[in-house]
Structures are given as C-alpha cells and as structure tokens.
C-alpha cells in the first residue's frame, strides 16, 4: 500500500460551459500523488488550481462545467472516494458553522456519518488536543482569530479519518507570522497522521516550506509547467535562509514570471 498512488490524474481537462463561452480552465493535466505525500500546486490566479481540487473531491458543479480525462482516487472514481468519505477538504475560509461551538463544529462530520456519542466525544477531544484548542471547546467561531478558526477546520477535516486532505489556500488570509505557525502545525499534523496532502497556494515560499513536490501550473488554461522535487530535509526552519531554499524560490518565480510575460 505504501508505494501506491493516492491520486492519479491523466490528461484532465476542465471546461466551463457557463454562458456558452466554453472556457477551458485546465488543459491536459497529468500527475500522480503518492500515498502519504505532501504535494503543492502553485500557479497564477485563474489557472484552475482550486478547480483541480474540486474535481478530485467530486464537488465541482457539473451544471456549469465538464471534465475530460481520467481521475482516480485511491484506485476508484472521485465519486466513490467521496461516498466512502476518503477525502477531507479545507477551504480558504474556515467555513465553520457559526451557530455551533468548536466542539460541535469538529463533531459535525461524525454526526452526519452517524457515529455514537461516546465515540464522537472521544475523537473530538483528541482532535482538539492535536490542534491545541481543547481549552476553547465551548467557544463559538466568532470568538476566535482567523488562524484558530482555520485550525478547527483542519481538525474537522481530519475527524472521520480520511486518507487524503485537500487544502485550498487555507492560510491565504493569515498574516505572515501566523501563516508560518500554521505551516509548522500542519507539518506536525502531517507527520502524526501520515495523510496524503494536496495543498493549493499562491505563496511560493509556503509551497517550498511544506511540500515534497511542487506542481507549477501555467496561466489559464492551466497546464503543467514543471513538477519540482523539493530536496530539503524536514524540519525546514533552518533551511529558510539557505541558498538552496532561495534557488527553489527563484526557480519557481522565474517559471511563473515567464507565464505573466506572455499576457
């Protein structure tokens, strides 16, 4: 199982047929994500990064779009993977339910699955402990900072123990210091749980800091420009100022800058 691929994309194209324009959002993207791998997708805005996540999680609204190509999630279709609750999704905004306290927010997916109360309580306690928010269990989302809210949404995504975590610019709204903190906490969650993580971001530095591989997409329609192996040891705190780190930054930056020039 260890060497299997969690996600396989073969020549995935996504077309928006909204307003009958027939806009191509993503064009013939192929890549694999290994089991337990941390992979990031970067690219100019509108290149279809988020849309790829929606296809993998089978949450794309197909009344406005159609997909071509082949997508396999854990060996079967995205729909099947979703129905078996193999995928956890973390959005750019925490998307917490304002009328539920933290505990109840984390327990939401477990209630929907229909777990018994004792088991829910046990799991929620463990998850809140993992993101260091057990003291705030009875707080409501609006009483917490954006970073804390996002941690709750990560805990919630992990609640039913999915094998894959899809994250769509989850720390995009945070300031630099909090973002760094959240990066470290995410890495420790990854280490602890061994989940496969696909992470969309527009921060080059964040992508290098977090991931084993980075997929660089072109501007719309998104094609694969390059897939980069990040050959830096974890934890990467010490690497932050290193030459190698800067080389990666420059490499990706120039890949993306070339993209902007074509416009």
């Amino acid at each position: 199982m260890q060497k299997n691929n969690s996600i396989e994309l073969k020549e995935l194209s996504i077309l928006y047929n909204d307003l009958k324009i027939g806009l191509e959002a993503v064009s013939k993207v192929s890549f694999d994500v290994k089991n337990g791998e941390f992979i990031s997708i970067v690219g100019p805005s509108g290149c279809g990064k988020s849309t790829i996540l929606k296809v993998i999680s089978d949450t794309l609204d197909l009344s406005y779009s159609e997909t071509r190509g082949d997508v396999k999630v854990l060996g079967s279709s995205p729909k099947k993977a979703r129905e078996q609750r193999k995928i956890g999704f973390v959005f750019q905004k925490p998307t917490l339910l304002q009328w539920r306290n933290l505990e109840k927010n984390v327990s939401l997916p477990l209630e929907i699955i229909g777990l018994n109360k004792a088991e829910i309580k046990k799991r929620v306690k463990k998850l809140l402990k993992m993101v260091e928010l057990e003291k705030y269990a009875s707080y409501h989302p609006d009483q917490l900072s954006g970073g804390m809210q996002q941690k709750v949404s990560i805990a919630r995504a992990l609640a039913y123990d999915p094998e894959i975590l899809l994250m769509d610019e989850p720390f995009g709204a945070l300031d630099e210091i909090n973002r760094r903190k959240m990066n470290d906490e995410l890495l420790s969650v990854w280490k602890e749980t061994g989940k496969t993580i696909v992470f969309v971001t527009h921060s080059i530095e964040e992508a290098i800091y977090l991931s084993e591989r980075i997929i660089v997409l072109t501007k719309q329609p998104g094609r694969i420009k390059k897939i980069i192996n990040v050959d830096l040891p974890y934890p990467r705190k010490k690497e932050l100022g290193s030459m190698k780190f800067y080389k990666y930054i420059n490499q990706i930056r120039s890949l993306l800058e070339n993209e902007e020039e074509i416009v």
């Binding site: 929606k54 999680s57 089978d58 949450t59 609204d61 979703r82 129905e83 078996q84 609750r85 995928i87 956890g88 999704f89 959005f91 750019q92 905004k93 998307t95 339910l97 009328w99 939401l108 997916p109 209630e111 929907i112 699955i113 039913y160």
Partner: peptide
C-alpha cells in the same frame, strides 16, 4: 455559500441532513 455545500457534499451528507444542519440554520 457554495463552499459550505461542498463541505457537506464531501461528507456525503444526504439532502435532508444538509438542509437541517446547514441550509435552514
């Protein structure tokens, strides 16, 4: 909001449950 609906979809939540737990409140 569409993200909330996607969230419930990712839980494979049934329509009545999504209505009771999300849409109505």
């Amino acid at each position: 909001n569409g993200d909330y609906k996607r969230l419930f979809d990712s839980y494979n939540s049934s329509k009545p449950i999504t209505f009771i737990k999300l849409i109505f409140p």
